[in-house]
């Protein structure tokens, strides 16, 4: 059964690029373009991993992360943050809220896939 990754990212090009990379590796990718729909899809689609952006309109990534971790349905899903914010305080905050990884943008897509695979096995 193919693994499923939810991409919560408001920037369509980035989301699309990520989908491409994941699908090349045989991983199913679902895209959500804002926090609310992200949470909803996380609950309904039950992904094996979530790639989460931080800088999003309306609901920010940290809030989404908090909600996902609070909800028993989604709390077990590993989360990898992918963000333009590279400050240490952001990294610490993300990790303390329950994210498994914090990857700064821009990144090498193949290295990211390697990391994702680690959580899918």
């Amino acid at each position: 059964m193919a693994k499923r990754v939810l991409i919560i990212e408001d920037h369509p090009s980035t989301s699309e690029m990520l989908t491409n990379v994941l699908e090349l590796e045989g991983i199913e990718a679902i895209a959500a373009y804002d926090g609310n729909s992200g949470i909803e899809k996380a609950r309904s689609k039950k992904p094996d991993l979530i790639l989460l952006d931080i800088m999003m309109p309306e609901m920010g990534g940290f809030e989404v992360l908090q909600k996902l971790k609070q909800d028993p349905v989604t709390s077990k899903i590993p989360i990898v943050i992918v963000s333009v914010r590279t400050e240490e305080e952001n990294i610490k905050k993300g990790l303390s809220l329950g994210a498994n990884e914090y990857i700064p943008k821009p990144f090498d897509p193949f290295k990211l896939v390697e990391l994702v695979k680690k959580y899918l096995t």
Partner: peptide, 23 residues
């Protein structure tokens, strides 16, 4: 510098894909 990272991410990502011949 933060804002520039956003467009740079898909640029670099796609470039990697193209260079690796995945597309």
């Amino acid at each position: 510098s933060h804002e520039l990272r956003t467009p740079l991410t898909p640029i670099k990502g796609y470039l990697s894909l193209l260079l690796k011949g995945k597309m």
